[in-house]
């Protein structure tokens, strides 16, 4: 199917997310606006206004009731998805780089940027499951990352741990109750920041993308690097597809270098790799700037990517995508 081009943002996209049903896509951009779109036809459902700076991150809870956003205006905000009403604003000393709900929607975490006078932190709030209720200002947990700042973080399955990726190329496992650091493993090249971390559907493993041009598949429980995917360009994002055993990687040369080189060299393609065999299967062209984020439909029927070029491209997978199988997979399927 032809990709759908969502051209509602005026500046670079920073994150795009599907809701759990996969019918709505939420997008945030440096133009201060949050967008909501129907994934099926790309029609715009609405926008959420209020942020005073570039937006870095967005997440939606499993029931598509609450929407969390964070940005460069040093605030993390909670919205009513349906009405667009701003429910809560949490203020911080530095910008919010990442927000994420736990898999049951009861907790929300935010990652704050490191700045002079402010260490990078991971904060957790308990969310009251009522759109009319007053949300708490009290952090249920606060983890300070003094070794190397956290760039991404999320809740594991059953909200047992918080997993964070750091600027120095390592991932950490924290206990969700006390916030103790349980494990820290250097998975990428030292001092190559981890740019993205996305979960497998059951959150028992996840994938990290890094500027060192590789993506790694890591088990949640013991932070064991199970697979490694090597590319020829710095990566900004990596996603795991349900249904088929693929992963999607997005990246491209650094945004600041784009104007000095031609698009040919930019490597602005979404790359598909086989999750288990670590082999590249295909590429999807289209963006004319680096891909800042790729998100997969929760049912595995499509994906969308947000680019530095200001567009969201929504793709639906065709039949050959589902039919493609390696010989050994086919053998397995027959058994």
């Amino acid at each position: 199917m032809r990709p759908i081009l969502l051209s509602g943002h005026e500046r670079a996209l920073t994150q795009v997310k599907y809701n759990k049903d996969g019918d709505i896509i939420f997008s945030v951009s440096k133009d201060h606006v949050v967008g909501a779109w129907f994934s099926y036809n790309g029609e715009r459902l609405g926008t959420y206004h209020g942020h005073q700076g570039a937006l870095w991150t967005v997440d939606v809870d499993p029931t598509t009731t609450f929407l969390a956003t964070g940005g460069a205006d040093n605030t993390m905000r909670l919205w009513n998805v349906q009405t667009g009403k701003l429910l809560k604003t949490w203020e911080f000393g530095s910008s919010i780089k990442r927000v994420e709900f736990s898999s049951d929607g009861s907790k929300l975490l935010g990652v704050t940027e490191k700045r002079t006078g402010h260490l990078s932190t991971i904060v957790v709030y308990d969310i009251v499951q009522d759109v009319d209720a007053e949300q708490t200002d009290e952090q249920s947990l606060r983890i300070v990352c003094d070794e190397s700042k956290a760039t991404v973080a999320g809740f594991s399955y059953g909200a047992k741990w918080i997993i964070a990726g750091h600027e120095d190329g390592s991932v950490s496992q924290y206990d969700v109750k006390g916030g103790e650091l349980l494990d820290n493993v250097m998975v990428h090249e030292p001092d190559m920041p981890i740019t993205d971390m996305q979960w497998a559907p059951d959150r028992t493993y996840f994938i990290t993308a890094s500027k060192d041009k590789t993506a790694k598949l890591i088990s949640t429980k013991d932070l064991n690097v199970m697979k490694s995917y090597n590319t020829d360009t710095p990566l900004n994002s990596a996603a795991i597809t349900p249904v088929k055993d693929y992963i999607i990687l997005g990246g491209g040369q650094a945004a600041m270098d784009v104007t000095t080189t031609n698009a040919r060299q930019g490597k602005f393609e979404a790359r598909f790799y086989h999750k288990i065999f670590e082999e590249e299967i295909g590429r999807v062209r289209g963006h004319f700037g680096p891909l800042n984020y790729v998100a997969v439909h929760p049912l595995g029927t499509g994906y969308c990517s947000g680019g530095e070029d200001g567009y969201v491209r929504v793709h639906h997978f065709d039949k050959p995508y589902f039919d493609f199988m390696y010989e050994v997979e086919r053998e397995q399927a027959r058994m």
Binding site: S103, D104, Y157, G158, P201, D202, R203, T204, P242, V243, P298, L299, G300
Partner: peptide, 12 residues
């Protein structure tokens, strides 16, 4: 007994 993860496993 982590149910939510098991449910997610059955997607697709």
């Amino acid at each position: 007994g982590i149910v939510d993860a098991l449910e997610a496993m059955n997607v697709g």
